[in-house]
Design a protein around this nucleic acid. Structure first.
Lengths: 188, 188
DNA sequence: CGGGATGTGTCGCTTATCCGACACTCCGGA
DNA sequence: TCCGGAGTGTCGGATAAGCGACACATCCCG
């Protein structure tokens, strides 16, 4: 976890770009937002944008990842056990995130967004699993994290599809089963 | 009035510095504020500060000038006649400005601040006089502006000293006399 | 069909900002 | 008295940001 100190200008500029993008995406659809729009809003040069991001899709990924990560980290899961409570919190964070997106009109980019969500979930699961079951094989934990992230994401889609119950209630029946199975497998 | 376009980085950085200074001066006295404090708050390098300002006193002058100028320009005096109404507005702006300063604890720098106020007033008076009496000699207008700025500033001190009446009322008796004298002199 | 308008991604050069270091001053305590 | 810490102002070299220009793609309108 060695953080090489990054140039303050970089931090400032990336924040300017991200904030401008998020602000613009509240009033425009993603496909109507140009690089020029963003750089004008952020008061930076267009070339500087390309210094930090491949293109506007790259920005979409990184911006959404950051927003989602803030949601996910709000409870500092790293110091907690991976129990039913944490699971439900993560689920709530994901559904909240998707809710906020549907207000911001990113239609046509569901696949990209889905992948972002799973990636970020995988990161969180990985951290927690390593902290809790650090003695297990790296591969085992990684694969477990992958499955958990896909599972949680799938559940969020299922919840959206027939969105009757509150997110807090939705998983109540499934989590205990999943977690006990999980602990059985890993602690063997 | 040829505005050479300034580098956006310069605009951004100067704003960062000014805002940080104003923010700090709300919680600290001027003599307790260091350059380091400002640059840390503004998230810029200390050397960059010296790229834009001579020292912290230079910043004080420029920051206060800017704040005051915003007050003074709020009514866009350039397009107005120099009548009693404008005079009272300017007076109000100056007393408001001094009021806001006394909350921000710049004790010991009254002389500097007084000069800033008079300078800015002089600029405003000069603009208005030129627009209105452009045919008169440059020197005549300049001297008039000087006298008006000193006069208005002096009046604001007088008002502070025995601050019984509202600023709006304070000049009521004096302005008509001053203005009619003024118009008599210049229109000859 | 053609051409103008708009957006994209890249380039070389200039300039503002960052960084670390330096010498200097001031000041309170050992 | 001397010392160390904290603040100031300046320097040279490295690097991010700005600028204008370019080639290319797309789209729309006459």
């Amino acid at each position: 976890m060695v953080q090489v100190k990054t140039d303050p200008r970089v931090v400032r500029t990336r924040k300017l770009i991200m904030d401008s993008f998020i602000k613009l995406s509240e009033s425009k659809e993603f496909r109507d937002i140009t690089v020029k729009d963003i750089t004008t809003e952020a008061m930076i040069n267009r070339a500087t944008f390309y210094y930090h991001f491949e293109d506007i899709y790259d920005l979409l990924e990184k911006a959404l990842s950051e927003v989602l990560l803030i949601n996910l980290n709000s409870a500092e899961y790293e110091h907690k056990k991976l129990d039913e409570d944490v699971f439900n919190h993560l689920f709530k964070a994901v559904t909240d995130f998707q809710q906020s997106l549907s207000n911001r009109c990113h239609r046509g980019y569901e696949d990209t967004i889905a992948q972002i969500i799973r990636d970020q979930l995988e990161v969180v699961f990985n951290k927690m699993l390593k902290a809790q079951y650090g003695l297990e094989k790296e591969e085992t934990l990684k694969t477990t994290a992958v499955m958990l992230s896909w599972g949680l994401y799938g559940a969020s889609l299922e919840w959206k599809r027939n969105g009757t119950a509150a997110p807090e209630e939705f998983l109540k029946t499934a989590t205990p089963f999943l977690l006990h199975g999980l602990q059985f497998d890993l602690q063997k």
